[in-house]
Structures are given as C-alpha cells and as structure tokens.
Design a binder for these strands. Structure first.
Length: 491
RNA sequence: CGGGAUGUGGCUCAGCCCGGUUAGAGUGCUCGUCUGGGGGGCGAGAGGUCGCGGGUUCAAAUCCCGCCAUCCCGACCA
C-alpha cells in the first residue's frame, strides 16, 4: 500500500479511485471495462447481500436462477425495452473456436455460427416473462415473488470501478400479480426495503421518489427510486423498483384465469440494486484518510493490533488479544486479531485505517500492566483508553454510535447541500458553486427536462413521494407547475 | 464514435527536444542487522524484449512511418 493518495479537495474522482484500489476493494482487469472485486471488497458486498437477502425473504420472496443468455428475438418483444438496451448489448454469434490455420493461436470457427444469436443479459425481464408464461394459468398461481442474484452485462463506453462497469453483480426481483393494485403495492414495498437497507445498514440517507418519463426504466409504467447524495454534491441512484404494468405480460402473452373465470393479463414489477452500492458506500462516508465502513457492513468491526518488542511480550500481548477477541465475538462482534509478525504496528494502524475498520484496539505491555486497551474510532479518529472490564459492552455501544454518527453526518451533508431555485440563473449558480439537490418548478414536459439537461447537465432525479403541492412557474418556460421536483447532476 | 495525451523493473515516473558509457530514481520485493505505542533506520541484493513491427544511421528508449494498447475530455447509462 502506498502512502500517497488524493484528497477530496484536490481531485474527487482520483480520491474515489485511490480508495477503491488502495483499500483493496477492486481493481481493473485485463478485460476492458470489467473489474476484479478483491476479497475485501467482496466481503463487504457479501454483507450487503446477506442483509438484503434476508429482507427479501422476510417479505415473502424466494431466490431462483435464470440463464445469462437471452435469444435475440426475446429482447425485441417489448418495444420500449429494446430501445432502452439495444445500444449496450453484448451479442454471442458463435459457439466454437478452432486452431488458426496460419498458426496464430485460436480463431472463431466460421462454421460455428449460431442460428439465433444470443444476447448476454443486460437485465432479465424477457427471459423471465417467457418462463413465467409456463408457470401461470390461474389466479391460484399468483403472486410469483422471485429474486435472482446474478451478473449482467451492459457494454459501457466509459467505465468506473463499481459505479459503471461493463459487467456488474446485482439482484433483480421479478414479481407477477393478479391485480394492478397488488403490483403497485409490491413496487412500493421493495422501495421501502431498499430505503431501510440504505439508511439502516449503509447509513446512507436517501430521497425516495418517482422517475420522470425521461429517466424511467425502458418498459416500465412507473420507476421508483432511491437517490443518495455523494460528497461532491452529485446524486447517485442507489436502487430502483419498477411497476411494469402489463407490458411484459402483453409482450409474452402471459394471462391467467381470474376468480371470475376471465382471461386477464398478469401485472408485473421488477426491482434491483447492484454493486454500484459499493461506490455509493465509498462516496458517502470515506474521508481523506481512506475508506470508512459503517459497522453493520464492515467485514471486521474491530481489529486488534498487538504492540511488542520481545518474543515474550508478543506471546503475552497476543494471549490477551485472543481473550479479548473471543469476549467480543461472544456478543456477536466481528474481530480480527492482526498478529502478523511481518508488519510493524504503525503500518498496521495506517492500513486498517485506510481500509475503514470501524474500531481499532491497540494492546501493548503497558496495557497488560494497567489492564487497559487503547481504542480508536475510525469515523471521528478519537482515541480512548479503556479498562478491559466490560469491554464488549463498551465497544458494542461504540459501534452503535458510529453507525448512527455516520448516518447523521451524511444526512447533515445532504441537508446543507439541498436548495430551492426559482430562476434558471439561480439554479445554474447553485449547481456550479456547490452542487447538491435543487428543488425547482418544472412544466412536466420531456422537452423542458432535456433542455435543462443540455444547458446545465442536471437531470430530474425524482419527484419525491409525498411531495408537497405548491403553485409555481417552470424555471425554464415559466409555465405553471404544481410542485417542485429534485434536480441534480448525477453519476 | 469525435477531441487530447501516454506507453521505460511489480507500481509511479525521469531520460527522448539535441541519437553515443553498463538505461536511472522513488516505492515495492529479498537477505542481514538495529528496531517496534502512527506507514522505521542502516547495509547488501534481485528485478527491464524501453508497447509491437518496419525504416534512417557506424550507432536508436531517443529520429521517421505504420500498427496495437491504455488513460483523460465529450454523446449514452444502474
């Protein structure tokens, strides 16, 4: 690990990149646009997965798995959907290689062309609705509440670790319902689940809302979203939940016999969050000293660093460290005893700090004499000397405080970077000078939204749920508007 | 796909304009030693087809031509 890394002030994009790479979360791979998620980064993702998976199960969902290849013809069945994804699909045309007659390794065997080309899934609505057709005959077969954890591919031109990669990991829920109301309720319920996860696990406050037509998922009637604010004032869409209406049922002819004996089209939802959340996590809490991970998602919540000179001291300090470790583990705290003899304490301090471990315990000969430990908080960088008695309780309490403090700090940041603008000049000035969310009136048209985007690079992140009605005039056209919508520059 | 740049030990880069010792530095790595409460000191050592191909020249990392790759800025996107 290098000592040098950028600060947020110097170069925000570089700062982000340095943290991802130097905290060992991920690195670029030999495949353009694709990343390697390293063990430490993956451990955080696994924590996210575990929490989300439980929440999905608790709301009645089950996991399943669908193929990563989709027949080309499926993708074109829903017009808006193709339109949305066509430009970034990877296509499989052949199924065999052969030795190059010229001796240059292997080449694609031209004899082995697929009759129907396959698309590497950019999302799975089509293959899933094709499958659901076979699963659904009667209202008794509904609802279907399925989630899958999978990889998807969207061939992006410009990529950034976690935020936008050609391949990424995510979960996608796909549900089928007998009524519109039930499907709408499902879409909202999952938005609640995402909100709960973002705020209570990631300690990341989110704005909940509906997307405008412009930003809506291709094939959806309504797209709900949670929007977070990063430390550079830009918005990041952290999760989406779609009410798909009967669009996919119609495209794939999925009907059911209702209680009344009528043939009706099935109602659908889909919802997902991706490894992009890792990027959100980094940009919400981390500081110029590196990554900061909220305790609930930290692979290790506490790291114990032994301080010693002699072999005998090493033994004594480690014995004590092991005792503390098991005492903490008994109350459910995840602990790592860093007893590597190949690195110095100072190095370990810096390393764990950069990797965002919430609490560090240092224990040395002096502590053994006094029955104390030194405890350092990653979020505030405070240090305390604690008596070892009741240490587990004290640390548990500290971890709770850290979790809460991170959320509060992030919320305060968002609040101090949220503005109202009533004129285009004011709007532009706010975006240029401080960034953040800007509540402004908009005439409700796609054209106006696009014009504002061209002029200011800001998009409508969402129309907040439970948005207060307020008469006003569109900042661009001056036409009447009944509510403010949230604009921001976004990732 | 437009505009700009860069390819030199694992990593970050200097050297290139103005061709000429054995191609350097920092960091990382290995060994030894003194060390150890915030990224250690000293000593020794390993590690390079200078992106690839061609050309000019007595001589090319350096000049010329072609190719490839990567990065940054724009349009698209979770």
């Amino acid at each position: 690990m290098s000592k040098e890394h950028a600060t947020r002030e110097e170069n925000y994009a570089q700062w982000y990149n340095d943290i991802v790479i130097k905290a060992d979360l991920a690195e670029n791979s030999a495949v353009r646009g694709c990343m390697v998620i390293k063990p430490y980064g993956f451990a955080i993702w696994e924590k996210m997965q575990a929490a989300l998976d439980k929440m999905f199960k608790d709301t009645g969902h089950v996991n399943a798995y669908f193929p990563m290849f989709i027949p080309k013809s499926f993708l074109s069945k829903e017009a808006a959907h193709v339109e949305g994804f066509a430009k970034e699909c990877a296509v499989i045309t052949h199924y065999r290689l052969k030795n190059d007659p010229q001796g240059n390794g292997v080449v694609v065997d031209p004899e082995a062309r697929l009759e129907e080309e396959l698309i590497v899934r950019p999302t799975s609505e089509t293959i899933i609705w094709n499958t659901y057709k076979g699963w659904i005959q009667s209202y008794r077969d509904l609802p279907i509440l399925v989630n899958q954890w999978a990889n998807v591919v969207r061939w992006e031109m410009r990529t950034r670790l976690f935020l936008r990669t050609a391949e990424f990991l995510w979960q996608e829920g796909h549900t089928a319902h007998a009524s519109k109301e039930e499907a709408e309720e499902e879409a909202r319920r999952m938005l609640d689940v995402y909100t709960d996860f973002a705020e209570n696990y990631m300690a990341m406050p989110v704005l909940r809302g509906v997307k405008t037509e412009n930003e809506r998922f291709a094939g959806a009637e309504d797209t709900y979203c949670i929007e977070a604010m990063m430390q550079d004032g830009k918005a990041l869409q952290a999760g989406t939940s779609h009410f798909l209406g009967q669009n996919f049922a119609r495209a794939f002819d999925v009907k059911f016999t209702s209680r009344e004996g009528r043939q009706e089209l099935v109602w659908a939802t889909s919802w997902g969050v991706s490894t992009r959340l890792m990027g959100a996590l980094v940009m919400t809490h981390s500081d110029d000293k590196g990554l900061v991970i909220p305790p609930k998602l930290a692979p290790f919540q506490v790291v114990i660093v032994p301080i010693y000179k002699s072999e005998a001291e090493f033994e004594a300090v480690c014995t004590s460290g092991k005792k503390i470790k098991s005492a903490l583990e008994n109350v459910g705290i995840r602990v790592k005893l860093d007893d590597r003899d190949t690195h110095k304490p100072g190095y370990k301090f810096a390393e764990h700090e950069f990797r965002g471990v919430p609490l560090r315990i240092a224990i040395g000969p002096r502590d053994l004499e006094n029955g104390t430990v030194e405890v350092a908080r990653r979020d505030t960088l405070e240090k305390f000397s604690f008596q070892q008695t009741d240490l587990a309780t004290k640390l548990q309490h500290l971890l709770d405080q850290i979790q809460e403090n991170l959320f509060t700090k992030a919320l305060q940041f968002r609040e101090t970077h949220t503005f109202k603008a009533d004129t285009l000049e004011e709007f532009t000035r706010i975006l240029d000078e401080q960034g953040g969310f800007v509540y402004a009136h908009w005439d409700g048209t796609v054209e106006t939204e696009q014009k504002i985007k061209e002029m200011t690079k800001a998009t409508i992140r969402c129309i907040p749920l439970n948005n207060p009605m307020e008469q006003g005039n569109c900042i661009l056209t001056g036409k009447p508007s009944s509510q403010r919508v949230v604009f921001a520059r976004a990732y």
